[in-house]
């Protein structure tokens, strides 16, 4: 086979291979977290339920960041969650964070509800108002307890 046809085929192969890579990168994958600067804030929760590292942080349903890490505060016995927020979005300092579930069986995520303060959150800040995850077992337990407490009263 002559040199030029060989080069042509190899060129086609490399071009098609890179086209596949671009297809995987653009059409299949998303670039969350890799684009632009981020700033990091933390939030302490009484109970994070099944929240995982890299879970999305959403405000008004839009993904604005990711959970960076999850730790445990030894003195206050609370879970400390580090949130990596997209630098394009800023929030007031009195923003509240709550752990929510998408759908009944969906993944858990952190929801941010913006407050009304003028000053904005910056790296190192801690969110003061937090709401823990709803633990289904506790909810059912409470429900059964209330039912049991009701039953004798209605029997009379």
């Amino acid at each position: 086979m002559s040199r030029t046809t060989l080069d042509l085929w190899v060129g086609v192969f490399v071009a098609v291979g890179f086209a596949a890579l671009v297809f995987l990168a653009v059409k299949v994958g998303n670039h969350s977290g890799s684009s632009g600067p981020i700033y990091t804030v933390s939030a302490a929760f009484d109970n994070i339920g099944g929240l995982k590292v890299r879970a999305p942080v959403k405000s008004a349903g839009v993904v604005v960041g990711r959970v960076g890490s999850i730790g445990f505060d030894k003195t206050k016995f609370r879970a400390v969650v580090r949130l990596d927020l997209d630098g394009r979005y800023t929030f007031p300092v009195d923003t509240s964070a709550s752990i929510l579930t998408s759908g009944l069986l969906g993944e858990q995520y952190v929801g941010l509800d913006p407050g009304a303060e003028e000053t904005e959150l910056k790296t190192g800040d801690q969110l003061q108002i937090t709401q823990s995850a709803v633990v289904l077992e506790k909810l059912i337990g409470q429900f059964l307890f209330n039912k049991a407490a009701e039953a004798p009263a209605s029997a009379k």
């Binding site: 990168a25 059409k27 299949v28 994958g29 998303n30 670039h31 969350s32 977290g33 890799s34 890299r54």
Partner: peptide
């Protein structure tokens, strides 16, 4: 099919690790 795929496939985490 495509939007759910795009939502949960991360470029760095999934695509790059595969490469």
């Amino acid at each position: 099919f495509w939007s759910q795929m795009r939502a949960s496939v991360d470029f760095r985490y999934d695509v790059l690790n595969g490469i």
